[in-house]
């Protein structure tokens, strides 16, 4: 049982950081549906660098850097060129999927490095994830930078007449967001499951994306949601640990996705929105083009 909880929290950590990164971008008004793609980049490049150099630190830095670079690319298309953010994000996913399969293929197999030591039985990244949530909440609600980020996500033209550089603020968020996505990917391939194989993520990024909507753009609900989904995810992988022989493991495998679909459907109802007043950033997904 303890092992199950630990594995669940490890999985939650990746959801937390990936979803938090998406939340950060979305609060500034930029939607990135290609979380999965950025994570694949971070995971693969991080894995390759760590294995080549034998250094976890360099591996993580490489994962963060490539994530930031993809974030910059997404920013260039969706902020500077004002293209459709959904299409652009899908492009990033397909690019990530294709390119990492190609460049990562020779690295198929285990990482072959000593595991990262645990802290009181848990992955150290769990604590980093919780700390990032607290920092993100503090920055978004208590600082003037956070106010600027939220305002460009709500109404960029208002932000502009208040003297805020919309482009710069959005780039800052999107690049930071990309770096965190790359970091989340690298945690997966260097710590959670240090084996490289073809398309190993299998939907983590998409669940992270859904978690942002689930969280109603609140970092704390996001943390709760991540833990819930991490547990479900773990349950779907090893149902026999908790509920032996209840259902086929193939059915268990679909549980997190089914719940995601259900939760998103519930949240998109008029009833739910009226009741909870989901705090969706008003300008989410809309490029800001000055006339």
């Amino acid at each position: 049982m303890w092992e199950f909880i630990v594995r669940s929290l490890d999985a939650s950590t990746i959801f937390t950081i990936a979803a938090l990164s998406e939340l950060l971008g979305q609060r500034s008004g930029v939607l990135n549906v290609g979380v999965e793609g950025v994570m694949l980049f971070g995971a693969t490049i991080g894995f390759m660098v760590a294995q080549t150099t034998g250094s976890y630190l360099l591996g993580f830095l490489a994962g963060i850097a490539i994530g930031g670079l993809i974030g910059l690319l997404h920013g260039f298309f969706s902020i500077t060129l004002g293209s459709d953010q959904v299409v652009n994000g899908m492009g990033i996913w397909i690019l990530g999927f294709g390119l990492t399969t190609y460049i990562g293929y020779p690295y198929t197999g285990p990482l072959g490095m000593e595991r990262i030591p645990n802290v009181i039985g848990l992955s150290p990244f769990f604590f980093i994830g919780v700390a990032l949530i607290i920092i993100a909440w503090f920055v978004l609600t208590k600082t003037s930078l956070g106010l600027r980020i939220r305002s460009v996500g709500e109404n960029p033209s208002v932000a502009e007449v208040s003297g805020i550089n919309v482009t710069r603020t959005r780039y800052l968020s999107v690049i930071t967001s990309g770096m965190l996505m790359g970091f989340a990917g690298a945690i997966y391939s260097l710590d959670y499951n240090p084996v490289w194989s073809n398309d190993f993520l299998m939907g983590w990024g998409f669940i992270a994306l859904a978690l942002v909507f689930f969280s109603m753009w609140n970092p704390y609900i996001l943390l709760g949601g991540s833990i819930l989904f991490g547990t479900l995810w773990q349950l779907s992988l090893n149902p026999q640990l908790v509920l032996p022989d209840l259902m086929s493991r193939y059915i268990w495998r679909t549980v997190p996705f089914t719940i995601t679909v259900g939760a998103l459907m519930l949240m998109s109802t008029e009833w739910f929105r009226a009741r909870w007043g989901a705090a969706k950033p008003e300008a989410l997904g809309q490029p800001y083009i000055k006339d």
Binding site: T143, S144, L147, R148, S151, V158, S162, G163
Partner: peptide, 10 residues
């Protein structure tokens, strides 16, 4: 919003 005297931490 955007006030120069808002400071880093509000």
């Amino acid at each position: 919003l955007g006030h120069p005297r808002a400071g880093n931490i509000l």
